[in-house]
Each structure stands twice: as C-alpha cells, then as structure tokens.
C-alpha cells in the first residue's frame, strides 16, 4: 500500500520532499494515476492521492476543477453518466474498484454517499432509513430492522428529534433534518467510507454546525471524504485537504498546514481569493 507521505506525484509542479512532520497514516482509499473523461474531454489528470482511514479529507478547488467527479469516482457513481471513461486505479483496502468483476452494488454499500441537496424518499422517516437494509437483505427480522434504523438515526444525531414521529413523512422535516436523515440512510447499510458532496451548502448556520459536529463524530467509525466550496468549513471539519485545479491535484496536506503555509503558489492564490 502506498504510504501517505508519497501522494503528491500528480501536482503540476515538482513535488517537494514529504514533510517529515507528517505521520504516515494507513490509507483506506488509494487513488492511483486516475484520469476521467467526459467524452473526449479529460476532466481528471492522473490523480494520485491516498485518503487516510478514519480521517476526514476535504476536496477543495474552484468550480469545474474535478472535485465532485473525483468524489463520485470513488463509488463509481460516474458510471451512470453515458460516454464517460476512467483510467488508472482506485483501491479500496487494496482492491481496485474498477476491476470488471467488481460488484458495483456491493461497492456502493461499502462507500456511501450524501448529496448536496437532501433527497429523502417520499416515504416515512423510518422507511427512508430502512429502505437500503430491506433491498439489500441486510436484516433478518423486524426487530433487527428497528434496531438498525434506531442505530443509524442515533449516529446521524437525529434520533432524539424524530423518535416520536418515525412514521410521519420525511418531507415534513426541516432541511437540516432531511440532510441528517440522508446521512442516516447512508449509514444504515454500514458503509466503510462516506462521501459527502457539499452536505451543508443549502443549510442555515445552526443546521450546518450540526452536520459538522456529526462529521467529527462519524470519523471514529468511517473514512470521510467531503467536497465543499466553503473553505472555512473545509478548515473546520477536515484533517486533510486536497486542492484540485483544472483536473490536477495541486496540493495535499494536513489541513492546518495547507491553510496556513501552502506549499504551492496556486494553492496560496486560491485560498487568499486571488483567483477562483
């Protein structure tokens, strides 16, 4: 497995020596020389990057830099878009998720995803969380189903707010609650990696704070990768940050280092608002 300190191979400028202060961490998801094409247009250029296990990694960069494409590549959500093509490898615990024999449904169970806009099913709160468990046959009986729904809602810090109205429509919840319900739904199938695509961009500051607290709590059990346009949020919630620009990985480092002493001028210019 590639060690954490060696991941900057794809930056546009020559990589500097790995920071000796950086502790090598076990990598959960290793992206290796990964490129992605929409038709003939290459939107990711040989990205090499290791996402540390049980840590939060933020992907930042201007619109169109490829961060969401990279996020969606990690559970092959881009496969659903016609005329797309991937090159290189993405290893989940050392196994290439782009191998032809990989079961994509099983992959997406291991790598859950929460989208920018909360998208609960037009069903009850209970059924939203139970759905994935049922269709995947992950529970043996009703009692187990109830236990898993409760466990997921608790993990998503929503249980206390909804325990007395589990059978009401999920659409009656507030925006922040709906987003946490979507997180609970993703957690119900017990994934190993959680992909969050701007999970708080449509939420008010209080709901955002709850999501951020939740992320900090969830990393004990999950490897979390978050795309965010909000750089203060990236600074608050993530342990590591990757900066992408025009499909290239420019810099990857511990968040506090990237935000205070970026190595690359492009990162500096982006963070300080000189472009983007």
């Amino acid at each position: 497995m590639v060690k954490f300190g060696t991941i900057r191979e794809t930056a546009r400028e020559p990589a500097r020596a790995p920071d000796p202060q950086t502790t090598p961490l076990p990598v959960k998801v290793q992206v290796e020389r990964f490129s992605f094409y929409y038709g003939d247009v290459r939107v990711l250029h040989e990205i090499t990057l290791g996402f540390p296990r049980n840590q939060v990694t933020a992907l930042i960069g201007p619109s169109g830099c490829g961060k969401t494409t990279l996020l969606r590549a990690i559970n092959r959500m881009n496969d659903l878009i016609p005329d797309t093509r991937a090159e290189g490898r993405i290893l989940l615990d050392g196994e290439n998720i782009y191998d032809p024999q990989v079961d994509v449904v099983r992959l997406r169970r291991r790598v859950g995803m929460v989208f920018q806009r909360s998208n609960p099913f037009p069903k009850t709160i209970f059924e939203n969380v139970a759905y994935g468990l049922r269709v995947n046959g992950l529970v043996r009986n009703r009692r187990e189903l109830q236990e898993r729904v409760e466990e997921s809602l608790r993990q998503a810090a929503l249980w206390d707010e909804v325990k007395d109205r589990l059978h009401e429509s999920a659409l009656a919840l507030s925006g922040g609650q709906q987003q946490r319900l979507c997180i609970a739904r993703a957690l119900a199938v017990r994934p190993e990696v959680l992909l969050l695509d701007e999970p708080a961009s449509a939420l008010d500051p209080i709901a955002t704070e709850k999501i951020e607290e939740l992320i900090a709590e969830l990393k004990r059990h999950y490897t979390i990768i978050i795309v965010t346009h909000n750089m203060q949020q990236a600074a608050r919630v993530s342990d590591y940050t990757a900066f992408l620009w025009m499909g290239h990985l420019v810099e990857f480092n511990q968040t506090e280092k990237l935000f205070t002493v970026p190595r690359e001028k492009l990162t500096e210019d982006y963070l300080t608002g000189r472009f983007g």
Partner: peptide, 9 residues
C-alpha cells in the same frame, strides 16, 4: 475576513 495562508500569517 477570515484570512488564510499568507494573509493569515
């Protein structure tokens, strides 16, 4: 302004 990088320093 919530400065970052060289601005923060």
């Amino acid at each position: 302004r919530q400065p970052t990088a060289s601005d923060l320093r």
